[in-house]
Computed example of a mutant assay.
Amino acid sequence: MNDGPRLFSILRQGPYLIASVHTALDDSQLVRFQNDLVERIGSDRARGVVIDVAALDVLDSFASRTLRDMAEMARLRGAVTVIVGIQPDVAFAMVQLGMDTGRVVTALDLEEGLAELDRGARDPTAQRP
């Protein structure tokens, strides 16, 4: 499961982690991404995470559930999560198929995602349901 190149990156930006998915991930790669991100939250003592999915033109039910799970794991480790970059066609398909991101905050792009984290870091109760 941990063999092969990473198709995602996790970079630190101050108190935040920016996790970018570069191409579609299969289920085992999604689990690797999840494990790596949750581990980095602890090792970097991150207060927030932006997950950028702008490169994805498809988001299936397993990927949607995994993103929600990642956000919940991050919350349990003390970090707020914002998902950014959901493409219009992906958003349309998700709504048509009854899929969503649950209570995870979303934003249009990285800039808005970081601003959302800044708001959440100042007032942790400001997270939207």
Rank of each mutant, 00 (worst) to 15 (best):
N2L: 12
P5C: 12
R6F: 07
L7N: 09
F8V: 02
P15R: 01
Y16C: 08
L17R: 00
A19K: 00
V21N: 01
H22F: 08
H22Q: 11
A24N: 07
Q29M: 11
Q29D: 11
V31L: 09
Q34G: 09
N35F: 08
D36I: 05
L37I: 06
I41F: 03
D44N: 07
R45L: 11
V49E: 00
D52Y: 00
A55F: 03
D57I: 09
D57R: 08
V58C: 07
V58N: 04
S61V: 12
A63N: 01
R65D: 15
R65A: 15
R68T: 10
R68D: 05
D69N: 10
M70T: 15
A71N: 04
E72K: 12
A74D: 04
A74Q: 06
A79V: 10
V80A: 14
V82N: 02
V82G: 04
V84G: 01
Q87K: 11
P88F: 13
A91S: 13
F92Y: 14
M94A: 06
V95N: 10
V95T: 14
L97N: 07
M99D: 00
D100P: 02
T101W: 10
V104T: 13
V105E: 15
T106D: 09
A107F: 07
L108F: 08
L108N: 06
L110P: 02
E111D: 14
E112A: 11
E112Y: 09
G113S: 05
L114A: 05
E116T: 13
D118C: 05
A126I: 12
Q127H: 12
R128D: 14
P129V: 14
P129F: 13
